[in-house]
């Protein structure tokens, strides 16, 4: 990453995108599509979260070790959720 590179414009664009996505997720919640609602909400949240991680937290330009460390948290979280649900839902 180049220290002398200014990120102001990138941050502004990410900020704008996050606001638009928030508006979309709130708007969608007023319509009832059944199970589809939660998938849209989680998809939009994940896109927003990824933008925050990649640009605001600089994970995009960070070194590989930090990227792997942070992503590992979500791998373990998925294991935690998956194994717990496999018990609760199928007992």
């Amino acid at each position: 990453m180049n220290v002398h590179h200014d990120h102001n414009k990138t941050y502004l664009a990410v900020f704008g995108t996050l606001l638009i996505l928030t508006a979309i997720t709130v708007a969608v919640s007023y319509f009832h599509f059944g199970v589809f609602n939660i998938f849209v909400a989680m998809f939009v949240a994940t896109v927003k979260g990824s933008l925050v991680c990649l640009y605001f937290m600089h994970l995009k330009d960070d070194n590989r070790v930090n990227q792997v460390v942070f992503i590992s948290a979500f791998v373990f979280l998925a294991l935690f959720i998956g194994l717990t649900l496999s018990d609760v839902l199928f007992r």
Partner: peptide, 8 residues
Amino acid sequence: IASSFTMA
């Protein structure tokens, strides 16, 4: 989100 932007 605005606070995150100003922090960045």
